[in-house]
């Protein structure tokens, strides 16, 4: 679920690497994204008590301030939201994007002080 994808054979293996998983094509294929039906399964799945549907929507629109207010930096990137999403929305992709942007903003804000 949280493993890093190997994009080429030159990827280094570090001490913390416990194994390499190879998944078949049908297992990894991403379904076609459809409209959010607000089923709240992502909210239920999130172990951190966040609202992935909201964070993904905000990140898509680059609303970094709202993302920070909704605790996007608390996301542990476990991917449970995306796993459970019936509409096949790549929630974690969007949340990760938003989290990185927000963390960058926070860092530059702290650097100014």
């Amino acid at each position: 679920m949280m493993g890093r994808a190997l994009s080429n054979v030159a990827m280094p293996v570090m001490k913390g690497c416990s194994g390499i998983t190879i998944l078949s094509g049908s297992e990894v294929r991403r379904g076609e994204e459809s409209a959010c039906i607000k089923c709240a399964k992502c909210v239920e799945a999130c172990p951190m008590g966040l609202e992935p549907y909201l964070l993904a929507k905000i990140s898509k629109r680059k609303g970094w301030e709202a993302a920070e207010q909704n605790d996007i930096v608390s996301c542990i990137e476990c991917g449970c939201c995306q796993f459970t999403c019936p509409a096949n929305i790549p929630l974690l992709d969007y949340v990760r994007l938003g989290k990185q942007s927000v963390m960058g903003i926070i860092r530059s804000r702290n650097a100014k002080k």
């Binding site: 493993g3 890093r4 994808a5 994009s7 998944l23 294929r29 449970c80 459970t84 974690l92």
Partner: peptide, 14 residues
């Protein structure tokens, strides 16, 4: 097919 995690998807669908 290379994509960021999570690499699996549940069986839930609309």
């Amino acid at each position: 097919f290379v994509a960021p995690a999570p690499h699996l998807h549940g069986e839930m669908s609309t």
